[in-house]
């Protein structure tokens, strides 16, 4: 999985591309979130638009990312969920935990 980091005003946007799966993708996500938080980010938007596959480890990392950012007083939100990622989060009822947006502008305006 590839992670690209952008900044829009005070929101740090992580663009994820590929598979958030055990062994590589999940670790890349964890590292990217920790790096953002350690750099002082408190508003984190994860763009999942280019994610092709996510497994339980990837879901676990999303949950951990949410907890990490929230525990530091920040907010983590998700945008552009492909249907299969939305399905995976729906099955484990996490879709109700995350704030999810269909487009980036709405997501940015919500922080």
């Amino acid at each position: 999985m590839k992670v690209e980091v952008r900044q829009s005003s005070d929101v740090t946007i992580l663009d994820l591309k590929g598979k958030i799966t055990i062994g590589t993708g999940d670790i890349a996500l964890r590292d990217a979130v920790m790096e953002a938080v350690d750099s002082g980010a408190t508003k984190v938007l994860i763009n999942l638009g280019q994610v092709t596959t996510i497994d339980s480890s990837g879901v676990g990392e999303l949950v951990s990312a949410y907890t990490t950012v929230t525990n530091r007083g920040g907010k983590l939100k998700l945008v552009n969920l492909p249907s299969k990622v939305a399905d995976i989060l729906q099955i484990t009822q996490l879709i109700t935990v995350f704030e999810v947006f269909d487009n980036e502008n709405d997501a940015l305006a919500s922080f």
Partner: peptide, 21 residues
């Protein structure tokens, strides 16, 4: 049960649920 509200935010424990689903 990963769907139990007390387990919802745990980082692991969902793999079996996905397989069965």
């Amino acid at each position: 049960d990963p769907l139990d509200p007390t387990n919802l935010m745990k980082p692991s424990g969902r793999g079996i649920l996905y397989m069965r689903r």
